[in-house]
């Protein structure tokens, strides 16, 4: 059961869909950290916010990422009882996470500027 899309992206170079997926995944981390910097949130809330920006295609992608961020120490979490369903896992930024987010935001702005410049350059020619 090897995913055709995935293998195409990893083996067959950067096809259009693959490139977009890679780009989304790359910035997803930054987005999640940004959302959490505004306040603690549990996955559904994060997903709702991400959906507005059309960054998340499928929710499943989010969970491994959250766990990985948590395991690297960027995020912490606490359990909160929910009146309507299972207990919710509220994620929050740790100090390291905040630090990391600042660095990431910085390099992101640099990157966007650089990329935009390159694209503008290409348009002018």
């Amino acid at each position: 059961m090897v995913n055709s899309e995935n293998s195409a992206a990893t083996q067959g170079g950067f096809e259009k869909a693959g490139a977009q997926a890679q780009m989304r995944k790359g910035v997803l981390e930054l987005c999640i950290l940004s959302i959490l910097s505004q306040g603690d949130a549990y996955p559904t809330e994060i997903i709702d916010k991400l959906k507005d920006t059309k960054l998340v295609v499928v929710e499943g992608t989010l969970y491994p990422l959250l766990t990985r961020l948590k395991n690297t120490g960027l995020l912490g979490y606490r359990w909160e009882e929910s009146t309507s369903g299972p207990p919710r896992k509220y994620y929050k930024l740790t100090e390291i996470g905040e630090q990391y987010l600042k660095e990431l935001q910085l390099s992101w702005t640099e990157l966007v500027e650089a990329v935009n410049k390159t694209i503008e350059l290409g348009k002018k020619i």
Binding site: E5, V58, T61, R68
Partner: peptide, 9 residues
């Protein structure tokens, strides 16, 4: 989403 897409991360 499909399980394969989860693995993307």
């Amino acid at each position: 989403g499909k399980p394969e897409e989860f693995g993307g991360e």
